[in-house]
């Protein structure tokens, strides 16, 4: 499953990943941090190119499922304004063993940050800017 949503429901993600053939479930949740490069962050806003973002996430998901033989894989990204602590991205996998689950989960988030057309605007107390490089 890949989705762009207004609000991420983490409990629902965990439920969706449940699979009787899976012995290991690994989930990464990205949340809004209150600081960036020494500045206080007040909120984030995400712009997305929905149709292409879905298409790019599907490619990444399919690659991960084939490479690690996953039972399930999920990628969800939020859109719009997000406050400190809000979940903005969640990727998760269900695999037979942790040996596949951990690297597959890391692959999903690392590749998402490289190619999926989603843009983050950081708001500070007195300014804002589009993030152009993801650490």
């Amino acid at each position: 499953m890949v989705q762009i949503v207004e609000h991420i429901d983490l409990n629902e993600v965990y439920k969706q990943l449940a699979d009787p053939a899976a012995g290991g479930t690994c989930i990464f949740v990205g949340t809004v941090r209150d600081h960036s490069l020494g500045n206080d962050v007040t909120k984030l806003n995400f712009d997305t190119y929905d149709t292409m973002a879905i298409s790019e996430m599907e490619k990444i998901r399919t690659t991960a499922i084939e490479k690690w033989g996953l039972e399930k894989a999920i990628m969800i990204h939020a859109v719009g304004e997000k406050q400190i602590g809000d979940p903005v991205v969640v990727v998760g996998v269900a695999a037979a063993h942790r040996k596949e689950a951990f690297p597959a989960c890391q692959f999903l988030i690392d590749e998402l940050k490289k190619t999926v057309p989603i843009w983050k605007k950081e708001f500070f107390t007195d300014s804002s800017h589009w993030v152009s490089q993801t650490p």
Partner: peptide, 29 residues
């Protein structure tokens, strides 16, 4: 530049009706 939701390169053709998009450096996550 993306053409019909796929990353495109300089030699790739553009036809009327194609969905063209400008993709600045991405920063999702």
């Amino acid at each position: 530049i993306a053409v019909n939701t796929q990353y495109a390169h300089d030699p790739d053709p553009i036809s009327s009706g194609d969905e063209i998009a400008l993709i600045p450096p991405v920063s999702g996550g």
